[in-house]
Structures are given as C-alpha cells and as structure tokens.
Write a protein that binds this DNA or RNA. Sequence first.
DNA 1: TATCACTCTTACGTAAACGTAAGGGTTTGG
DNA 2: CCAAACCCTTACGTTTACGTAAGAGTGATA
Lengths: 162, 162
Amino acid sequence: MPSEISAESLSLLKVGDIARRTGKTVRAIHLYEELGLLNPAVRSKGGFRMYRGDGVKRIEWIQKLQDMGFSLTEIKVFLRVWEESATAPKAMATVREIFTDKLRETRETIARLTRLAEELSESLAFLEGCRSCDQGQHQRECGGCGRSDHEVPLLVDGIAKR
Amino acid sequence: MPSEISAESLSLLKVGDIARRTGKTVRAIHLYEELGLLNPAVRSKGGFRMYRGDGVKRIEWIQKLQDMGFSLTEIKVFLRVWEESATAPKAMATVREIFTDKLRETRETIARLTRLAEELSESLAFLEGCRSCDQGQHQRECGGCGRSDHEVPLLVDGIAKR
DNA sequence: TATCACTCTTACGTAAACGTAAGGGTTTGG
DNA sequence: CCAAACCCTTACGTTTACGTAAGAGTGATA
C-alpha cells in the first residue's frame, strides 16, 4: 500500500506567495496574524507559515472591509463576534447590524463629500473670474479685487486675508 | 491732547478666546503656528499671543480645507504657494489648479463610496434571507446554508470560511 | 553539499494631528 | 498686593497600519 503523499502539501502557500497574490506585503500579513485576523493553516517543520488558498480570500475580505472604512481592530471585533455567535441566525443578525450601521455612515460621508464638491465647484466658478483680472496686479491687492458680482466663497476668502 | 489709547488693543484676542470661538483646543492653535498656518498679530509684553478677529476666519478656513481632505502640511504648501505668487492672477491660477485636483479626487471618492454602499446593500439583502434559516443551526454549518438563489456576496462569504 | 532566495523573530521607525503633563510666568479683578 | 485663571515652552505620549533593519534559520535547486 503506497503511502498517501499528503496531497494538500502540494497546494500550500508560503507567506510570500500569499503576498504576491494579494498585493499585500509580508509584513502586512504578519500584522494580520498578530491581530488575529488570519492564521496559517499549519507551520512547516522549520517554522514557515503555510496557508491554503482561502487565505487569499480572507485577505481580500479584509481589504474590502478596510475600503469600507473599518479599522483592523474593528475587523477583529467583527470576526470575534462571528465566532462567538452560537447560532447562524444570531451571527447573521450581528453582521447585519454592523453592515447597516456602516451603510448609514457611508451614506452620510457621501452626502458630506457631495456638499464639499459643490462648494469646490462654486469656488472654482468664482476663480474663473480672476482670469480677467489685471495681469499686473499684485496678489496682496487681490482678495477683494473690486468685484461685487457675488460673494467671495470662504474657501477663497480665507486665504487672501492678512 | 489725550493719548491715543491703542484702540485695537481692546479687540485683541488671546489664544484661549480664539480656541473658544473656533471649537479648537489651545494646543491645536499652537500646532497651526508651528506649522506656519497662523501667526498671532502681536505678542503681549509678557509673551502672550494676541490675535485679531481674522484669526478666527483663518482657522475656519483651515477647518474647511481639512474637511475637504487636505492635510495640514498640504494647507501649508497652499499658503506658501499663495504668498510666493507675485501676481494675483498667477496665485489664483494655482489655487484653481489645487481645487480642480481636489474636486476630481472628491468625485472619485464619492464614486468609490457609492459602489461600496451598493455592495453593502446587496450583502444586507442577502442576509435578510438568513432570518428564515433554521434557528438552531450552528454558525459553522452556515456560510453555504444550502441556498443557491444567488451568489454569496464577498462580504459575507469571506467571514464564514474556516 | 553549496547556494540563493525565502522566512523567522524581534524591535525600533514613521506620519498625522493633536493630547497631556511639568514647571513656571502673566493678567486681571478685588 | 494677592489669588484665580490664563498663558508659555518643552517635550514625551497616542493611534493606525504598516516599513525597515538585523541577525539567523530554512527550503529547494544545482
């Protein structure tokens, strides 16, 4: 009877492999382990971290949550909550709660940024008018510029003073 | 002839006053000065920083730019560029450039967050289906859950594995 | 077996925007 | 003139997500 040559040992990935496949650095992956976000499936005899393919998925998941604005610490809490939920529906309920909160937060951020974008547009529109300004005018004389067609936006007004 | 009692000395503000009026801390204002973002108009005989009313405006302007995502260092560059522009139109052109860049960046951020919000919504929709899941099911048995009505979103899939 | 490319652990460094504390002066109202 | 309330400078502390370096062992290949 031929010894069963550990079939999976062939598909195990070293930390560098994982790094290449995810675009992360080895250091980052080490950090995730320190924070309890990802553990290698096993260690080689010599101590090398050996991962399975799903390690890549886990890291992509982490990345996704980071993009959403979760800190690594929050992600850790996330995992712990999940692990400590006795039943699937309960775990799902918790996840739902967290996602719901984040969704609201994300929408608020979008609203805030939208307002800022508008303000930027207005300031830019105002600045367009400065093209027609006397080319020789010194900047210290600007700020007011004699214009009264509309208000000077705060973004422009603030800098010109002093 | 009555000595002209320095009329403005009456309207000068101490750092604490500025702090109260802007909601910033004294430390923050000190920092802004270290970074070259705001200098007191004068110092009292004893060394106290004395500001004029426009100091408040300057801080509000800083706040605005911070909200827009500029770092204090970037704001400093901003001010220097302004001060070093010989002519008003040239200074305005530079400001326009910076604002244009930031506007583009802001819009990109909005787009990214919008996609994330959609992804969150999808994940939440998926999780709604978990309510009907067997109440006694252990979370380890979940993840797949036997459902095949649609794909498990990455946000949900990533956490359930292992 | 000799290499060379990897990996390990340990641990200090970094950038941002302040927080906080220490040890003293300064203003100002009474 | 005194005390409470402020202010000054100096300088180390904090958090986040890694970067970077050192010194040494490991694995796969020639």
